[in-house]
């Protein structure tokens, strides 16, 4: 599979209403107006200068945050000045306004917002916290994603994605892994989302959930069959296992010293090419791949340790006196043990 050629899907806009499900615990102050407006920019803006009347370069297509500065500035004005100041904002098509610190908004602000179809939210968090929570939420909502055909399983806490031609047995391997106590994330359709530029997260789709097709059997529901411990909703992608029929022309790694990577939306992901041969238990190999990845992550690389041992042995031999080659036993002294 060519991961570089996958078409990136980007979210162009989200509706204002979806902000209500953000972790910033927003409360709606303006009732049912403007909730279907679109947010086309994931950045947040503090409209300080715009309130003061300087509206050139005003980023009006961003979400406007009323923090301390804006609030106390508005409070310092007379009522008429305040109305003029708010109208500086309201003349633009603003997606929505959020007031922080759980403050009550001036009644004239609410009035003008209603007239201009601008929804207003309030949050109990302070401005910095609200900025963090909302940015994270918006980053995720606007994150680019790709759709891949494969099975995604959490094996010993490592996110392993199986890819390969249809009919090669990806779903069967996923099912086998579930049976052995691992957790299915998604089968067939896996959505991969880029998070914070370095992480790829994988989930299933809301329609497919944890349903799965097993050829010759039909559609089964893994969640119902194996219970909640057999599934999870999302997992970070760490290894891609590409399954293919054994081919004589293809080179397979024998030492595991050189790692190959797949590039998904600019993020490098470890990749293993696995030939399928009769009598080979792919499920067990998948478990070993995951454990080996954990060992490497925690600082032990079996292939490297073995090579270093070999280098040492060769060095010792070439430094010492020339003798006939004889390999040593791992243990020389058996302490009278006859087993």
């Amino acid at each position: 599979m060519k991961f570089e050629e996958l078409e990136e899907i980007t979210q162009e806009s989200i509706v204002v209403e979806s902000l209500l499900s953000s972790p910033a615990k927003l409360k709606l102050l303006t009732g049912n107006i403007g909730l279907d407006k679109l947010i086309k920019n994931k950045d947040l803006h503090r409209p300080q200068l715009a309130l003061a009347g300087f509206v050139e370069l005003f980023n009006h297509n961003q979400i406007q945050i009323i923090g301390n500065t804006e609030y106390f500035y508005l409070k310092s004005l007379t009522k008429q000045q305040r109305i003029n100041s708010i109208k500086n904002l309201a003349q633009f098509d603003i997606p929505c306004v959020i007031i922080t610190n759980g403050r009550e908004l001036f009644p004239e602000f609410l009035q003008i917002a209603k007239e201009h179809n601008i929804p207003i939210f309030s949050t109990d968090y302070n401005t910095t916290k609200a900025f963090n929570l909302l940015s994270e939420y918006l980053d995720d909502q606007f994150a680019p994603h790709v759709v891949v055909h494969g099975s995604f399983v959490d094996v010993y806490g490592v996110g392993v994605l199986f890819v390969g031609k249809s009919g090669i047995g990806k779903s069967e391997i996923a099912l086998d892994l579930v049976e052995r106590g691992h957790r299915l994330v998604a089968d067939d359709i896996v959505m991969l989302t880029k998070k914070r530029e370095t992480i790829i997260m994988g989930t299933g789709t809301s329609l497919v959930q944890h349903f799965m097709e097993i050829r010759g059997l039909g559609i089964i529901d893994v969640r119902q069959m194996f219970g909640i411990r057999a599934i999870r909703f999302q997992k970070r992608l760490e290894i891609i296992v590409e399954l293919e029929e054994w081919s004589q022309n293809q080179e397979y790694t024998r030492t595991g010293l050189d790692e190959t990577y797949a590039n998904i939306m600019g993020v490098e992901i470890s990749m293993v090419k696995l030939p399928i041969i009769p009598g080979k238990n792919i499920t067990v190999i998948a478990e070993v791949i995951a454990i080996n990845y954990l060992l490497r992550t925690y600082g032990y690389n079996a292939a490297k340790v073995f090579t270093d041992n070999l280098k040492d042995a060769i060095k010792k031999r070439s430094a010492g006196p020339q003798r006939n080659f004889q390999d040593k036993r791992l243990i020389n002294y058996f302490q009278g043990d006859n087993e």
Binding site: L6, E7, I9, V147, H149, S166, G167, D187, D188, I189, T205, L207, V208, F211, M212, E213, I219
Partner: peptide, 17 residues
């Protein structure tokens, strides 16, 4: 709409709804 699925996968085809 840019959402590409494998035509040989029934779950995939159904995902297009």
């Amino acid at each position: 709409d840019k959402f590409a699925i494998n035509g040989k996968s029934i779950i995939g085809v159904m995902t297009l709804a």
